[in-house]
């Protein structure tokens, strides 16, 4: 145990501190997801509209956020707003802004994809049955789109959680940072702490993401059948 630095983990409140760090990361991702999903649904529906200008603007927004690494986006918002707008954002707020902007873009594309995937004859047979436009969307189109969307949005949550690890780089004290602090503090008594601590963080992320991925996979499979 000591050789691998796992002893540090169970000393004092170290493990709880680590979980607290993971909590910070999860909090940022869950707030961002909670904001991204409704905003993404809105933008996604707008993207299926016929208005060309609107579609072009939304497309540009999507592509711009997609092509930049999230790390660059974080830098732009964290350092850039201070310079350009004189704001002094703390790391957590900057992270939530970036991940919401990014998550909204990804979500809007998922929503658009789900909506256009519904075959035309579904619309036609709804009309043939005499349903109104509102009834058609409510009873026929939306339930099918949502079935398709649910596993994909759940997947977005795991992507968000993994991406949240980046906030370390703009100074947010999250799970990796806490691990670093613990390793530093125990440098003398446990020189191998880095192995055990980073392995633990690795597994903590896995434990947070794996069940969600599993659920998404199950739902996706049941959707396909």
């Amino acid at each position: 145990m000591q050789a691998l630095g796992l002893d540090v983990l169970f000393k004092g409140k170290n493990f709880l501190r680590l979980l607290g760090g993971l909590g910070v990361a999860l909090k940022i991702s869950l707030i961002s997801v909670a904001l991204s999903i409704p905003l993404g649904i809105l933008l996604g529906i707008l993207m299926t509209r016929r208005n060309r200008v609107l579609r072009a603007i939304l497309r540009l927004y999507l592509e711009a956020l997609r092509i930049m690494p999230q790390m660059v986006l974080l830098f732009l918002v964290f350092f850039g707003t201070t310079r350009a707008l004189g704001w002094d954002l703390d790391g957590e707020t900057a992270s939530v802004i970036v991940f919401t902007l990014w998550g909204t873009a990804e979500m809007s594309d998922l929503v658009r994809g789900a909506l256009i995937s519904i075959p035309k004859h579904q619309y036609e047979s709804a009309e043939a049955l005499g349903l109104s436009k509102a009834q058609m969307h409510l009873y026929i189109i939306l339930p099918q789109a949502i079935r398709r969307l649910v596993p994909l949005s759940i997947n977005l949550i795991t992507r968000m959680i993994k991406t949240t690890s980046l906030v370390l780089m703009i100074g947010v004290v999250e799970v990796i940072k806490v691990a670093q602090q613990i390793i530093e503090a125990n440098r003398m008594v446990s020189p191998n702490g880095a192995f055990g601590m980073y392995l633990t963080v690795f597994l903590l992320y896995f434990i947070a993401c794996f069940p969600i991925s599993l659920l998404a996979g199950k739902l996706e499979k049941s959707f396909r059948e």
Binding site: L4, V201, S213
Partner: peptide
Amino acid sequence: IELSRNTPLLIQLFFIYYGLPKI
């Protein structure tokens, strides 16, 4: 595949760079 897909690259790098030298 599951380990790789369900963990961020950042912690994978930290483990390889700072963790593995200890063994």
